[in-house]
C-alpha cells in the first residue's frame, strides 16, 4: 500500500478473490432455481428397414443392419429454464431400451439448442429422427423402447447438470415383432 504499484496490485488481487467468491455464489445458487418446464414427445410413425446407410458407408456391418425411421411430434415449453444465469438450453430426445445382450441402450434421435426464451415454446409436427437409429447388434433385439426428453441448461457461469422430463407418452414397439408388417403409423 506504500506506492501506486503496490496499491494497484492490492486492489486487483483482492478484487479477483472477491470475484471468484461472487462467481461461486452465483453458480451455486442458480442450481436451485425452480422451473416449470415441460416437453412431450409423441410417436406418430415408425418404419424399420434393412440396408446400408449413406452416412455409414465405411462400416461393413452397416449393410446388414436394421435402421429405424421415426416420425414424432414434439410439444415443449422450456422458457422457464431461462433464469438469469442461463445462456442456452440443450434439448435431446433419447430412445432407451434393454436388450438381452446390453442392459442399457441410449440412442440420441434428435437434439436442438435453444438460445432464447422466445424460441423455447414450440410444437413441431411429424419430425423425423435427425440421427441414425440402429441397435448395437445388427437387428433390434428389443421389443419396445421409450422416448425420453433430456435437457441441459448451459449457464454463463456454473455447473452443467442434466435433467429430464421423464414423461414418455408411449413406448415404441419395433415393427418386426408385428407379423407381416415392417412399419406402422399411429
Amino acid at each position: 500500500m506504500y506506492n501506486h504499484l503496490q496499491r494497484l496490485n492490492a486492489v486487483f488481487t483482492f478484487a479477483l478473490t472477491v470475484a471468484f467468491t461472487l462467481a461461486f455464489t452465483v453458480a451455486y445458487t442458480s442450481l436451485w432455481i425452480p422451473n416449470s418446464a415441460q416437453a412431450d414427445v409423441t410417436l406418430k410413425a415408425i418404419k424399420v428397414r434393412k440396408g446400408a446407410s449413406v452416412y455409414d458407408g465405411y462400416d461393413p456391418q452397416a449393410r446388414r443392419a436394421h435402421y429405424a425411421s421415426l416420425a414424432f411430434d414434439i410439444e415443449a415449453d422450456v422458457a422457464s429454464l431461462f433464469h438469469w444465469n442461463a445462456k442456452q438450453v440443450f434439448m435431446m430426445i433419447v430412445a432407451e431400451y434393454t436388450t438381452p445382450t446390453n442392459s442399457v441402450n441410449k440412442v440420441v434421435l434428435w437434439d436442438s439448442i435453444i438460445q432464447s426464451p422466445e424460441d423455447a415454446q414450440f410444437h413441431l409436427k411429424k419430425y423425423r429422427n435427425k440421427y441414425l437409429f440402429r441397435d448395437y447388434d445388427e437387428v433390434f433385439g428389443a421389443t419396445e423402447a421409450n422416448l425420453t426428453v433430456y435437457w441441459d441448461v448451459t449457464p454463463y457461469i456454473g455447473f452443467l447438470n442434466m435433467d429430464r422430463y421423464a414423461k414418455t407418452s408411449q413406448p415404441i414397439l419395433f415393427p418386426r415383432h408385428q407379423p407381416g408388417v415392417n412399419s406402422y403409423s399411429l
Binding site: M1, Y2, R7, A10, V11, V18
Partner: peptide
Amino acid sequence: QVLAEKITQIGIILAA
C-alpha cells in the same frame, strides 16, 4: 496505508 487497505476491502466486498 491502513486507511487505504480498509477502504479497498470494504469497497470491493460492498460492490460484490
